[in-house]
């Protein structure tokens, strides 16, 4: 049986308010998040079944990396793989059903699959109400990685916010190496443009490999206008 791995789930100590923030202030906020993650509150630890993670990988991840359950050790080390894409171009004005781009790094893949796992298994949100819109973002649309169209008692309790306006917007960043404040800045900038002055809530999900525990640390940052 595939061995399970552990994920420590943290909630970042502060809610980030983006309204009126300049670019420099947003960059500074990203640096603050990167350097203060260790002060986040441990919410709980949970075990991830790699077979189910692979299921969410095929359902939700943007990058087409197969069998992260069977190859978890290699993937988790950040081994680079080539993307297997169909050779012929699709007919004019059509695109393949799974339009994925791939830099060779699998950390983003694990991050997105882990975010879906967190929502479905830990927060008890139906898979059918989670929209994966990262492919649209790659096509140039102003879009988050995920659109979550349902809340749950687990989620409101975890985020310490009794009522969550829907939809909730999700931005995901995965790290196998050291944390990169620049990538956090891009996620905050995207949420800033999506939320603007509306009463929407964004979740910044940072998945970091925990080498010592052979697992992952997942940090959730609540972002509002």
């Amino acid at each position: 049986m595939s061995s399970q791995f552990i994920v420590d789930l943290f909630l970042y100590q502060r809610v980030i308010h983006l309204q009126g923030m300049t670019t420099n202030q947003t960059k500074q906020e990203a640096k603050n998040i990167a350097s203060n993650l260790s002060t986040s509150t441990l919410h709980r630890s949970f075990y991830v079944n790699p077979r189910l993670l692979e299921y969410y990988n095929t359902q939700f991840s943007e990058k087409q990396v197969k069998r992260i359950d069977e190859n978890f050790y290699d993937y988790s080390l950040g081994t680079r793989f080539r993307l297997n894409v169909p050779v012929p171009r699709p007919p004019r004005r059509l695109r393949y059903l799974i339009q994925k781009s791939f830099s060779g790094d699998v950390s983003g893949d694990i991050g997105e699959a882990l975010f879906a796992y967190f929502l479905v298994h830990e927060m008890q949100i139906s898979r059918f109400l989670i929209g994966h819109t990262r492919p649209e973002k790659k096509r140039g649309f102003l879009s988050p990685d995920f659109i979550i169209c349902a809340s749950s008692p687990n989620l409101t309790s975890f985020l310490q916010k009794p009522v969550l306006p829907l939809p909730i917007l999700g931005e995901v960043k995965g790290f196998t190496g050291s944390i990169d404040a620049g990538r956090i800045y891009h996620a905050l900038l995207q949420l800033r443009r999506l939320i603007l002055n509306q009463s929407l809530v964004g979740l910044l999900f940072l998945a970091m490999r925990n080498e010592a525990r052979h697992g992952y640390d997942a940090y959730v940052v609540r972002v509002e206008s």
């Binding site: 004005r93 059509l94 695109r95 059903l97 929209g131 819109t133 492919p135 649209e136 649309f141 102003l142 879009s143 659109i147 939809p167 999506l194 939320i195 603007l196 509306q198 929407l200």
Partner: peptide, 18 residues
């Protein structure tokens, strides 16, 4: 902002149908 998100999702659904 929500109108933009709805638009993106409709584009996605239409693209799947095509």
């Amino acid at each position: 902002p929500i109108d933009n998100l709805v638009g993106i999702l409709i584009i996605h659904l239409t693209s799947l149908r095509d």
